[in-house]
Amino acid sequence: MYSETFFLVLAFILACNATTLRSLDSEWKLWKSNYEKKYTSQIDEEFRRKTWESNWKMVQEHNQLADQGKKSYWMKVNHFADKTEKELKSMSCFHPPASEERTFKNYQDRSYQPGPSNVDWRDEKCVTAVKDQGYCGSCWAFSTVGTIESRYCIKYGPLVELSEQQLVDCDSSNDGCCGGFPSSAFFHVTEYGMMKSSNYKYKGYATECRFKNSKALQLNASKSYDLIGEDNIASAVAFDGPLSVAFAVHTHFYFYDKGIYDEACAPAANHAILAVGYGSEEYEQYWIIKNSWGQYWGEKGYGKIRRNVNLCEIGDWGSAIDLI
């Protein structure tokens, strides 16, 4: 009797495992199709499949907790799902200068403090479409350009898409696809101006500088500066427009889907994003950020990050430029 029961249980477990494997096979094929994934060899695909399964499991376990109200955000099996943790960490692209080299601006002394309770510059049609930096470490260029695009729109009216590739190729103060710092990039922009992205298209890798002054949009900028403190950054966003902020990205953040991210962080800031607004839900305050990882990430390229707790150093590295 014992032996018969054992074999029945074993048969049931094997049947469940076979069903799960068939289900994963189907999801794997669908995922590859959705994200147009192709691999150079069978060995490479097997490795990627194993990595994908690990990330798939992590996402499912996290979302079960989110569905139970134990997490404030959800994850998804997106285009990063076949990448290892080491590969994702290698995308780090934020290289801050020494603290003594930074010039801070304090917004808490401004007469318009405090700002509105909710701000979203997308409502004013002054935020360009979500872009994708690819596997080039150029987040610093995207957050710099995003700041300028929005503030140019707020100041002068038209929303113009500008060239991140110009900064990757031509800004000698930064390191192209190997990382950089928005404040340094603002100096380049102030001196040379910016070409439109239609005239200097993004490639996702560094090339020789092809800047043409005759096609550049000249910017009248009074100064560029750094901000520290979430109150200061919020005021700058509310009254001057979107700006670049740094973030200490943990692996979990790569798989963010929706909700308010409030969890793990890297040991130090390693990514630059664009703060386009802020708000609150059920007494939970958050930043609205535009990322440069394409529309597959987050809520069509946007995300919410818990505010006023300096999560992942988001309040330590604000950078902006004043247009006149």
Rank of each mutant, 00 (worst) to 15 (best):
L10N: 07
A18F: 13
S33Q: 12
Y39Q: 07
Q42H: 08
D44M: 00
F47W: 07
N63R: 03
D67W: 10
K76Q: 07
D82V: 00
E87L: 03
L88G: 03
F94V: 15
H95V: 15
K105N: 08
P114R: 09
V119T: 09
D120C: 06
K131H: 10
G137Y: 12
W140A: 14
I148L: 14
E149V: 12
P158I: 15
S163Y: 04
S172V: 09
S184G: 02
T190G: 09
G193H: 13
M194S: 11
K196L: 15
S197N: 14
K201P: 09
G204Y: 08
Q218S: 13
S222K: 02
K223T: 04
S224M: 02
D226F: 03
N232L: 02
A234S: 06
A236G: 01
V237G: 07
D240T: 10
A248Q: 06
H250V: 10
T251I: 10
Y256N: 03
D262W: 01
D262N: 11
E263M: 07
C265N: 02
H271I: 06
A275F: 09
G279T: 03
E281A: 13
I288Q: 05
Y296I: 01
Y296P: 00
E299L: 03
G303I: 01
K304G: 01
N308P: 06
N310R: 00
N310F: 09
L311D: 11
I314S: 09
G318T: 07
A320W: 02
